[in-house]
């Protein structure tokens, strides 16, 4: 690894000033699982590293007045998996975190890092988008909020401009009678990068018979996480029959825009979108065991 200047500012303002002052070669450091690896193998050549971990508040999971939650960008995946608050309000996120990497990686990697790295396969993105999360961005000109759906611009590309930091994810209050699941397809039994990830969130009516709302978000099958409204619409307002579930799965598969790479062919990814979407729906409707 090459030499870089290192700063560990204690305030957000200081961090932003450092990033602005040092320009393009300056990188913020969160968990480091991605940045340190890329710097080690020369895929990135940081001149300056600004460690964000000494800034208070960035790693809090804080309930908000409206019943929502503020998830600090530096909260680790292990903390998300373990957090009682998270398990209670957004079990989908705790469940997703447990499917990521290994215990070792989860103890370092942060939710903010997973999102800012903007890999098409980023596991945290589909469930967060399904939950209607917002990215809280702070930069030299203050704070702004962006719906997470709009946060991703392409592989490795995000809404963040230089000098801006993702400081938190804001989650709206959990809605009643809502169940979600994130299914991740991998080759080994653990550890792998998602070949396909599918998050499905359903809000049921009082009788638990009809979905009042549905969200389907796909990972690893497009340059950015892909929400599939045409599949969602099939599911809303009518009984969730097998036919409808199959139709939603077909539409999701059709909407996917996968590529061939070393992990999988595009053909296989598209097939898996269909299978996983259908299975996610079966799981949510019938409480069948997750596969």
């Amino acid at each position: 690894m090459r030499f870089f200047e290192y700063y560990a500012p204690k305030t957000l303002d200081e961090a932003i000033q450092l990033l602005v002052r040092h320009g393009e070669g300056a990188y913020p450091l969160a968990g480091g699982t991605d940045l340190v690896t890329k710097a080690r193998y020369g895929h990135l050549r940081p001149r300056v590293i600004v460690n964000l971990k000494r800034i208070p508040g960035l790693n809090d999971i804080a309930p908000e007045e409206d019943g929502g939650l503020r998830l600090g960008a530096l909260v680790t995946l292990a903390e998300i998996a373990r957090s009682l608050l998270m398990g209670e309000r957004y079990p989908l996120l705790a469940q997703t975190a447990r499917k990521m990497g290994s215990v070792l990686i989860r103890n370092l990697a942060t939710v903010g890092g997973n999102l800012c790295n903007a890999a098409p396969s980023a596991d945290m993105a589909p469930p967060l988008i399904a939950l209607g999360a917002e990215a809280v961005i702070v930069g030299p000109r203050g704070e702004r909020r962006v719906r997470l759906e709009k946060f991703f611009h392409g592989p490795g590309q995000t809404e963040l401009r230089h000098g801006e930091l993702l400081t938190a994810i804001r989650l709206p209050p959990p809605r009643p009678r809502t169940r979600g699941v994130y299914l991740k397809h991998i080759y080994r039994q653990a550890m792998d990068i998602a070949i396909v990830g599918v998050a499905v969130l359903l809000q049921f009516d009082e009788q638990e018979a009809i979905a009042e709302d549905a969200r389907i978000v796909l990972g690893a099958v497009a340059p950015t996480p892909l929400r599939v409204p045409e599949a969602e619409s099939v599911l809303i307002g009518a009984p969730l029959t097998e036919d409808r579930r199959l139709e939603a799965a077909r539409r999701a598969a059709r909407a996917a825009r996968p590529i061939d790479d070393t992990y999988s062919s595009a053909w296989y990814r598209r097939e898996m979108v269909g299978v996983l979407t259908r299975r996610a729906l079966e799981h949510l409707v019938s409480h069948s065991p997750e596969r």
Partner: peptide
């Protein structure tokens, strides 16, 4: 089932234990 050194035009593409898919304790 999983291990495969992927070689394209003489170049090895998967260079980490992760990408090479060595069996873990779960496998």
């Amino acid at each position: 089932l999983s291990e495969h050194l992927q070689v394209h035009e003489g170049r090895v593409l998967n260079l980490t234990p992760f990408d090479y898919r060595m069996p873990t304790i779960m496998d």
